[in-house]
Nucleic acid binder design. Structure first.
Lengths: 157, 157
DNA sequence: TATTGTTATACTCTATAACTATA
DNA sequence: TATAGTTATAGAGTATAACAATA
């Protein structure tokens, strides 16, 4: 019926998916920024600056987002003893449970959307492709972080 | 090397991709919300309430985002003559050009990331999968909007 | 009364610039 | 001096509640 059915842009698709993730996270009272922080911290405790670089946000953003998570007892701030300027951020048990709830909410919503494809093969294909993107994102991040510090590429998750 | 290499969650992947889209959009001084608005308006002029439902945001959010776009002459507000409560939102030529710049910036960045997969087949696979998601998103949206109004499913883009 | 849209208000994320504490 | 992190400040997106204008 439509005269020219232009393929939708990939940016549009990502932006829409991101909105669904936002809405799913809202059901467990989390923002996207908080979610990204929790996921990153689930891979291990980290310093604030390191998180800022990995998540590609400013240092004050990390402070603000972590503030909210600390209030909810999801994250703990601990000053390093060797270098007392540094602050180590650690996921608590509360944070781990919260992240679990968040993952459930998000997965449920995205799988529901993929389920609209009807054919299981297509839905699985769509979900599997995100793993492909995950690999690409990791490599792009490694390259980005390496360029900053001059380290070789491929060291980082 | 890693003892248990857990597959990253799809929510995490979407959230990371979304951050890259945000950063790409920042290069043309657009927010994700403004970008979503422009894309939706590029498919045709619409009323504010209709946009709010399609984009899954509140009515005041639409007002706020459109305010910024109107200031930049990217969108025009026009009062309907039949029903003077209604406001028709239209993309201007400025808006269309801005959207074009945004799409270029986003596509370039996402393709760069996909390019990390090295094998062209994989990169193309990843990008193609987003079209699959786009189809699923359209269907999920149709279902969502139909449930609200009681209309049959499948009417809407 | 119901609907459309805006205003009022508040909270979060974001950034840059300035500051503190430590090295 | 340089680095790690926070504070100060400002702007945007989001939401709910209250309101105005129109139907």
């Amino acid at each position: 019926m439509s005269p020219e059915s232009t393929s939708p842009s990939i940016g549009w698709t990502v932006a829409r998916l991101a909105r669904h993730v936002e809405l799913a996270l809202a059901t467990v009272d989390l923002s996207s920024a908080q979610y990204r922080m929790l996921v990153q911290l689930a891979e291990g405790a980290e310093a604030s600056t390191s998180l800022a670089k990995k998540l590609a946000v400013s240092a004050p953003s990390v402070t603000a987002v972590v503030d909210g998570l600390v209030q909810r007892r999801a994250v703990e701030r601990m000053h390093s003893v060797e270098d007392r300027r540094r602050v180590s951020l650690t996921l608590t048990d509360v944070g781990r449970e919260l992240l679990g709830d968040a993952e459930n909410a998000v997965r449920t919503r995205l799988e529901m959307i993929a389920g609209e494809l009807e054919e299981d093969a297509l839905a699985n294909n769509a979900i599997a492709a995100l793993e492909l993107w995950s690999i690409a994102l990791d490599r792009a991040r490694s390259r980005r972080l390496a360029q900053r510090t001059g380290e070789p590429v491929g060291v980082e998750p």
